[in-house]
């Protein structure tokens, strides 16, 4: 599903070069529910950004469903993200002027689907994430947990091959965080999309079926749970 080969990512911060990733190799199979964990500055978000085609490697390569991401130009990467990758962000990043329905439908409208299809799929995913009946609510009218459910629905509604979540529970209380993780786990099973989320929260790590530990831009542990 996703292959990361000797991925190196360097940043320049003023005159200083920051080595965010120092040659990461990882193979992620279809349908995995995995967490990339590590302390702050370990390179979790950088790795997620590279896998999500939001950024490009300094060296090395990344393949998503056997497609070389490094060879793609900006527009091709945009199209890849549009079709195959869903994102869930720490701070939800919903569009405040759109309702829950419209925020989710946004993802589908980018695919150019007919309105009937958009409506059908959006209402279905709203039910799946437990927000049936709240489709007309604006983000300001919803709790943090509900907003993150909308964000998850927005990521999943297009049936992406890959869902990337950057610290999805960081802005939620622990109970709501658990509910969100449980929801993601259920949807992972149901939709068979690959879920990769970054975290430094032990509770989140416990939920993951596979845990990759990063430290100073290098994978220090990679373990699967039964």
């Amino acid at each position: 599903m996703v292959t990361v080969k000797k991925a190196v990512k360097d940043y320049t911060a003023g005159k200083v070069i920051v080595h965010a990733l120092r040659g990461v190799d990882i193979l992620i199979n279809k349908g995995e529910f995995m967490s990339i964990a590590g302390p702050s500055g370990s390179g979790k978000t950088t790795l997620l950004n590279l896998i999500g085609c939001l950024d490009v490697c300094t060296s090395g390569d990344i393949l998503i469903e056997n497609e070389h991401v490094g060879n793609k130009n900006k527009i091709e990467r945009t199209m890849l993200r549009r079709k195959k990758i869903g994102f869930v962000f720490q701070s939800f990043n919903l569009i405040p002027v759109l309702t829950a329905f419209e925020n989710i439908a946004f993802s589908l409208s980018l695919l150019g689907l007919p309105n009937d299809e958009i409506r059908k799929r959006t209402m279905k995913i709203l039910d799946e994430v437990g927000l049936g009946g709240l489709e007309k609510r604006f983000p300001r009218e919803m709790s943090g947990g509900q907003q993150q459910r909308v964000a998850i629905a927005r990521a999943l509604v297009k049936n992406p091959a890959l869902v990337l979540a950057d610290e999805p529970t960081a802005n939620l209380d622990s109970t709501t965080g658990k509910e969100i993780l449980k929801l993601m786990e259920d949807l992972n099973k149901k939709h068979e999309s690959t879920f990769i989320f970054s975290t430094h929260d032990a509770m989140v790590m416990d939920f993951a079926h596979r845990l990759v530990l990063l430290h100073d831009g290098v994978i220090v542990d990679d373990k699967k749970k039964n």
Partner: peptide, 13 residues
Amino acid sequence: TRETGMMRALGMR
């Protein structure tokens, strides 16, 4: 800025 970043991340040109 973050909103437009999100829209671009989701594949909006």
